[in-house]
Design a protein around this nucleic acid. Structure first.
Length: 503
RNA sequence: GGGCCCGUAGCUCAGCUAGGUAGAGCAUCUGGCUUUUAACCAGGUGGUCGGGGGUUCGAACCCCCCCGGGCCCGCCA
């Protein structure tokens, strides 16, 4: 049984699956494990017949922690201020929306339907007011929970609520001086004293308290999170205790997942620059592959992500699962069909799809739709024009090839006067081809047959014979199907190139 | 100091919470196909399952101890 199905097996009643990612920088492939793990659990829960809600909390109230490497130095003045109140690094709008937008676009592309909730709105609408009141009235108990479970010492003037200074806009520089619902009075390091209304977005709960408060406000029953939260004494432990003892609710059922590493580089962090943005991944891989990457891996195992040849192998594997689903290939992997179902972003049928590897080759041969389409049809593609989905996949294949494709998979035509070393017998093959090349029918089959005929009559080994042409045309010993390859090239150009090669 | 994950074929991994003769894909090699989706079909090479103990009739799997790799553990997310 697939891990998502196994996870929801003992659930009963209405479920709310919650996920959350801070838009403090570009949202990367590593972050996608959060949202996709949640998505698969959501789908599995619904498939079990449970009424289920799936939400994504955008933590735009979080303060900017520091000036990240991708930010201008001038951002030092914004450190400590909430992300939704900071200007975007480029263009109009806010910092948080700037990084949220491409993420939401990516979710759309990979067919993740989720309710997006901005934490700042929850505060602004007063959703946190009651929880903040409870927390302020139980601050001593919360303090002892945090000290006991996390094992840290909490300073004397600590408060379970952090007002935002209305003067300097920072959130981590204020000290609470008194509380009487709904007002928290504070003094700030900047010298300002004021009061925050807990029914508005004038202050924020710290993470370890905000998390269980969200569980209460939103009725969260299931939540995936990274193992950093799951460490003993970590925020899930303290959150669970606060949920039970302060809010009187049960903590959500946890699904702890491991991190995604960039092969050879380490864990993905946008703060270190070791990260591939999710939007970049769907630029160089079909969208279902991002889902597949997460769906096929046990959450408890880390994933080594390799955007190069590893990605191509991953795509191959997806296509193998698809063939199993179509019934074109046998498999004793019970989860294969389920993984495919969870991964695909649309209905696919055998006549609609073309293998990614095949596309990689075709794209380098054909530069017009007619040639490409006829090649596709030979491979079983049933449409009379290139579909929008396939067009998009071609763009993706091109991008992958340009950005991550290994040299061995790339080829380009050599210029007519490029030098090439050939033996006499090799030149003889080309010369024979030249004799009829100008007059023969210039189509794939004729060319193929003609070359074959020449090689047979000269007792030339076919493998070596074909490689002569590849060496002359693309400087490699192997290449795409030769007849079709040549037929798609300009005849005069080919003749000119061969003539120069033998002279 | 505490905790989690991983270590199985050259590579990526499955198998481990039902203990019963080591698996898949890729790569590689051989054969086939009047050689081309760098394809396909058939077959082969390839692993003392990180090491050592223990439990057991029997351990990749359960227990203990090591070794190696990765990650997390103030605040913030």
């Amino acid at each position: 049984m697939h891990w998502a199905d196994a996870f929801v097996q003992d659930l009963a009643g209405h479920q709310t699956v919650s996920t959350g990612i801070s838009p403090s920088g570009p949202i990367h492939v590593g972050n996608m494990r959060e949202i996709l793990t949640g998505n698969f659990i959501y789908v599995a829960s619904r498939d079990r017949g449970l009424e289920t809600r799936f939400i994504y909390l955008c933590d735009d109230m979080d303060p900017l922690r520091k000036v990240y490497p991708f930010l201008d130095k001038s951002y030092s003045s914004y450190v400590g201020r909430p992300l939704y109140k900071i200007p975007a690094p480029q263009g109009e709008g806010t910092y948080s929306e700037y990084f949220l937008r491409p993420f939401l676009d990516t979710l759309d592309t990979i067919n993740v339907k989720v309710e997006v909730i901005r934490t700042s709105n929850l505060y602004r609408e007063g959703k946190f007011a009651e929880a903040i009141d409870v927390v302020m009235k139980n601050s001593q108990q919360i303090r002892s929970i945090l000290e006991e479970i996390s094992g840290r010492d909490i300073e004397e003037n600590w408060s379970p609520y952090n007002p935002i200074c209305e003067s300097c806009g920072r959130i981590s520089t204020t000290s609470v001086t008194s509380y009487s619902f709904p007002y928290v009075e504070y003094s700030c390091k900047c010298g300002h004293t004021g009061r925050s209304d807990v029914r508005k977005d004038q202050g924020k709960l710290p993470w370890r308290i905000e998390w269980p408060a969200k569980w209460k406000i939103l009725g969260v029953t299931v939540e995936p999170f990274g193992k950093d939260h799951g460490a003993p004494g970590g925020s899930y432990d303290t959150g669970k205790a606060i949920a039970e003892k302060i809010f009187g609710i049960s903590a959500p059922k946890p699904m702890i997942y491991e991190r995604i590493l960039l092969k050879g580089k380490g864990a993905m962090h946008s703060s270190t620059g070791i990260a591939i943005p999710a939007s970049e991944m769907i630029r160089v891989a079909p969208p279902q592959i991002l889902r597949f990457l997460i769906a096929r891996s046990q959450p408890g195992r880390h994933i080594d992500f390799d955007p190069g040849l590893g990605l191509l192998n991953l795509i191959d594997e997806y296509e193998r699962y698809r063939d199993i689903y179509f019934g074109l290939e046998a498999s004793d992997d019970d989860d294969a069909k389920r993984i495919y179902e969870l991964s695909r972003v649309r209905e696919e049928r055998p006549g609609d799809v073309v293998s990614f590897r095949h596309l990689i080759t075709l794209l380098q041969i054909y530069h017009d739709d007619n040639g490409l389409l006829s090649a596709l049809k030979r491979g079983g593609y049933t449409h009379n024009s290139i579909s929008g989905d396939l067009r998009a996949e071609m763009d993706v294949a091109r991008s992958w090839l340009d950005t991550y494709g290994p040299e061995q998979m790339k080829f380009t035509l050599l210029p007519p006067d490029a030098p090439v070393e050939l033996g006499e017998s090799e030149k003889a093959v080309l010369k024979e081809f030249l004799q009829t090349g100008q007059s023969m029918k210039w189509d794939a089959e004729s060319i193929h047959n003609r070359i074959h005929e020449i090689l047979r009559s000269g007792n030339t080994d076919p493998k070596e014979g074909f490689s002569i042409f590849y060496r002359v045309l693309i400087g490699k010993t192997r290449g795409p199907r030769l007849g079709y390859f040549l037929s798609n090239l300009d005849r005069d150009w080919v003749m000119e190139r061969l003539k120069r090669a033998v002279s």
